[in-house]
């Protein structure tokens, strides 16, 4: 098969580019520690969230020094709890699920971004440094009121933070 020299050079450059992309993504996922959302969150009975130890009471709880877990329900067309209040300089692991349809979970202006699927639990860990307030929105169409589905994440200064937020 006759391949022109220019074409060979182009082919090699293309393969190098591809290998380069795969390497950087792999480096990011392993060495830098940008974890992918996985099946770690497990499953849940979507019609019995009120009987589930994790989701019967949507909340934020402390699990270690500067470590918190947030149990969040995304449903047509709200997030619970709302706001989700966490302290600054903390690491928060979100567990998110849905009792009805597929939703999205996006903390606006950050890369905290995930899908929420009924029957599955989405687990994602986020570091919050500075105090502030972020918008939270559903980015997957979930019904006629989808555009109204929003919430907020309030990052309080550590000394003002009270367990479970101010619900």
């Amino acid at each position: 098969m006759n391949i022109h020299n220019y074409e060979k050079i182009w082919l090699m450059a293309a393969i190098l580019l591809i290998v380069g992309f795969i390497s950087t993504v792999t480096y990011g996922a392993t060495a830098v520690g940008v974890d992918m959302i996985s099946d770690d969150g497990g499953t849940v009975n979507a019609s019995a969230l009120d009987e589930d130890p994790r989701f019967s009471e949507p909340r934020v709880e402390q699990v270690g020094e500067n470590e918190y877990e947030a149990y969040v329900i995304a449903q047509q067309f709200i997030f619970r709890p709302d706001p989700i209040t966490v302290p600054a300089n903390s690491t928060v692991t979100f567990f998110v699920t849905s009792p009805d349809v597929i939703h999205g979970f996006e903390i606006v202006g950050t890369n905290a971004n995930a899908m929420v699927v009924p029957g599955q639990v989405t687990e994602l860990t986020v570091e919050f440094n500075e105090p502030g307030e972020y918008g939270l929105l559903c980015h997957e169409y979930c019904g006629a009121g989808h555009h109204t589905m929003e919430g907020s994440v309030v990052v309080q200064p550590q000394d003002e933070f009270t367990q479970g937020g101010d619900e």
Binding site: I15, N113, V117
Partner: peptide
């Protein structure tokens, strides 16, 4: 960013996708 699918399967899909650039 879906739950319920292990990271390794996502890595395989990523690798194949990059080769699909070729």
């Amino acid at each position: 960013v879906d739950p319920g699918i292990a990271e390794g399967f996502k890595m395989i899909a990523m690798t194949n996708t990059m080769f699909l650039l070729l």
